[in-house]
Design a protein around this nucleic acid. Structure first.
Length: 395
RNA sequence: GGGGGUGCGCCGGAGUGGGAGAGCCGGGCCAGACUGUAAAUCUGGUGUCUCUGACUGAAUAGGUUCGAAUCCUAUCACCCCCA
């Protein structure tokens, strides 16, 4: 029986009207409550913010990416520098993605492009060379060198990086493939999952915990099979990955399909999802953690997350903020909202001053943390739906 | 003071040198997209109107011509050379 000695997942409270639950996760680098949001520090850095900012906005856990760090600076260097925590100055809980998403994104472009059948990122899809039973071969976007990611090498790399939570290598199946491809891909991901688990056990140190990933595209029967597969293996937690469909309703359906087969005594992560409404909807289905580049990316593109605005956001590029003395968000307690006006942030963004991005990144991160706090309090007090309705009320 | 050159759209550049072009490339400006980040990226728009079509427009004012951004005259602005 595989033990995860430094780790623990407890369910503190379950909502009586939905499947939402309040959880508690312990790791060697600290504990945190769920539901929670994991910020993406893909290349061992949150773009536009540092560890001090993460602490200031009360972030619990962040994520980094095996694929990017494999190409540069390389896992051996990170290991030599004392591991990812020390290397990047973050001493809290951390997760690394396996590189599975790059098997998708470098082959097909972004989620939106792939669903809409566009490919505005010309040439990008040439860096994924091939996917075989053994693994995936990439051409480095940095120096053109060839790299192969196998389930074993992904685990080995993640071992050297040293994040608390690590993920099995999977093929993140795109939307525009037929069911037959999705099924075969899922079955290969399952074999990769077993190989990842074998490698994990072989070199187990007790300092890391492994998550299995549910695939199966948009198909109910495949999602059920895949979720039953990961539940049957000795993973610490589960992650739902792959194509979640073409629109939000389909995503919610896919999460339902996956949840049907997952054992609920393990933490469940929904990969790559971070829309504000998506978080409310999926917490209600029992999702414990989320990660998404959106809060920090849209911040760099001048969008501030604000509860009362249309689609929960405001574009600070817009000329109407040119002489607006108000803070970004009157409800927010972050340093950006305490100290700066919309006019100043608008100006910084127009002037392309880095500080503008930084201020917006800090605000959006704090927004996500306040959202998570609100959700946890609602579950704790057993009034999740009531809180959700009130929170969304002004939309 | 004399000679030469250049002037177009919010700005800069390229190009044209009697049959136009509301054209090209940057930038700016106005919006939008973005969901396990090759993303401080990418896309669209940017004279006016009654908008599938019209109208106005090439420094300013005249002139030549069937027709002028293009040729002529004057004026203005800027640049270069000479004094």
């Amino acid at each position: 029986m595989l033990e995860y000695p430094g780790f623990k997942f407890d369910i503190l409270k379950e909502d009586s009207e939905t499947n939402a639950r309040l959880g508690y996760i312990s790791t060697p680098h600290g504990d945190f409550e769920t539901p929670n949001f994991i910020f993406c520090a893909t290349k061992a850095a949150i773009k536009g913010a540092g560890p001090d900012d993460l602490k200031e906005v009360k972030t619990d856990i962040i994520l980094s990416n095996t694929y990017h760090l494999l190409l540069r600076p390389g896992p051996d260097l990170v290991e030599k520098m004392g591991g990812l925590h020390k290397f990047m100055g973050w001493d809290g809980p951390m997760l690394t993605d396996s590189g599975g998403f790059q098997i998708f994104s470098l082959g097909h472009g972004s989620v939106a492009e792939e669903i809409k059948g566009k490919n505005r990122s010309k040439g990008r899809n040439t860096t994924l060379r091939k996917i075989t039973e053994e693994g995936a071969t990439f051409k480095s976007y940095i120096d053109g060198s060839m790299h192969t990611l196998t389930p074993e090498s992904s685990i080995e790399t993640q071992r050297k990086l040293g994040a608390d939570f690590i993920l099995v290598l999977d093929e993140c199946t795109p939307f525009h493939v037929d069911k037959r491809y999705t099924e075969r891909s899922m079955e290969m991901s399952h074999r990769w999952g077993d190989r990842s688990l074998e490698e994990f056990k072989r070199t187990h140190t007790g300092k890391q915990a492994l998550y299995g990933i549910v695939q199966g595209g948009i198909h109910e029967d495949l999602r059920l099979r895949s979720s039953q597969f990961v539940s049957s293996r000795e993973f610490f937690g589960h992650a739902i990955g792959g194509s979640l469909g073409a629109d939000k309703q389909q995503m919610y359906d896919v999460v339902d399909y996956a949840m049907a087969g997952l054992s609920k005594d393990r933490p469940i992560h929904l990969l790559g999802i971070g829309g504000i409404d998506d978080i409310w909807e999926n917490v209600a289905k029992g999702i414990d953690t989320f990660d998404c580049v959106s809060p920090t990316r849209i911040a760099r593109h001048a969008w501030a997350l604000i509860r009362t605005e249309k689609n929960f956001k405001l574009n600070l590029h817009n000329s109407r903020f040119r002489n607006d003395p108000k803070p970004l968000d009157p409800e927010c307690d972050c340093s950006t909202c305490q100290n700066y006006s919309r006019a100043y942030i608008h100006y910084l963004m127009k002037a392309k001053e880095l500080q503008g991005m930084h201020l917006l990144v800090v605000h959006n991160m704090r927004f996500m943390m306040r959202l998570a706090e609100t959700i946890r309090e609602a579950i704790r007090e057993d009034r999740f739906l009531e809180t959700k309705r009130a929170w969304m009320g002004e939309q």
